[in-house]
Write a protein that binds this DNA or RNA. Sequence first.
DNA 1: AAGTAATACTTCGTGATACGATGTATTACA
DNA 2: TGTAATACATCGTATCACGAAGTATTACTT
Lengths: 106, 106
Amino acid sequence: MDIQLKRGLLDVCVLAAIKNEDSYGYKIIKDLKPYIELSQSTLYTILKRLETAHMLTVHTVEHDGRLRKYYHITEEGIKRIDDFKNEWNEILTIYRFVVKEDEEDV
Amino acid sequence: MDIQLKRGLLDVCVLAAIKNEDSYGYKIIKDLKPYIELSQSTLYTILKRLETAHMLTVHTVEHDGRLRKYYHITEEGIKRIDDFKNEWNEILTIYRFVVKEDEEDV
DNA sequence: AAGTAATACTTCGTGATACGATGTATTACA
DNA sequence: TGTAATACATCGTATCACGAAGTATTACTT
């Protein structure tokens, strides 16, 4: 998929991935794989960004002798998903414009 | 609207705006305004990028004593719109994932 | 006649971002 | 013994949207 189209979707996808259950980096990548592929460097960049924006909190848990960083969504993170759902209507309007122009002469 | 969400849509919108009739910068901005707002600096950056990518061609026409640069879509530009329409299904899948996760506990 | 809005294109600088490359470290399995 | 899987971190880079500022003409308003 076009890189540019992914932008704007990535943050929300990550938030959606941790919304119902706290999760950690490696699992998030695997969970999202069927929908959107993202590399580790991309994911950790996003997680750090979302943490700075207070959309999630982090807590470290020991698991099988190694550390895992679990990410927990905050109220602001939930609001971010809501905002996205509202913005979706604008996206749809734009999509319809493109299709309309495209089919005008078919 | 979220800046990131606009990315990926911008290029295609501009191409859609010139698809049925050659147009020029100032008019493109006005035509797109109801759907997506973009500044002059943004638009001209996009037009230059699309020209470099051979998705459109430029020809200058004198109009009322001043020069106007008309943009004409190419086959590749038309293909770009087609590609976008295909990618739209992936976007929809992602959208549905976000909504599904979001409504799981409602 | 003077001033302002609209038309029309250009360039510069900047912050945000996705991602490849690379590194570290442990566990599981062949 | 080796390799894949698990798990997180950092650096550098190219791309990009956009504000700011500039240039120049036409059209209107006062």
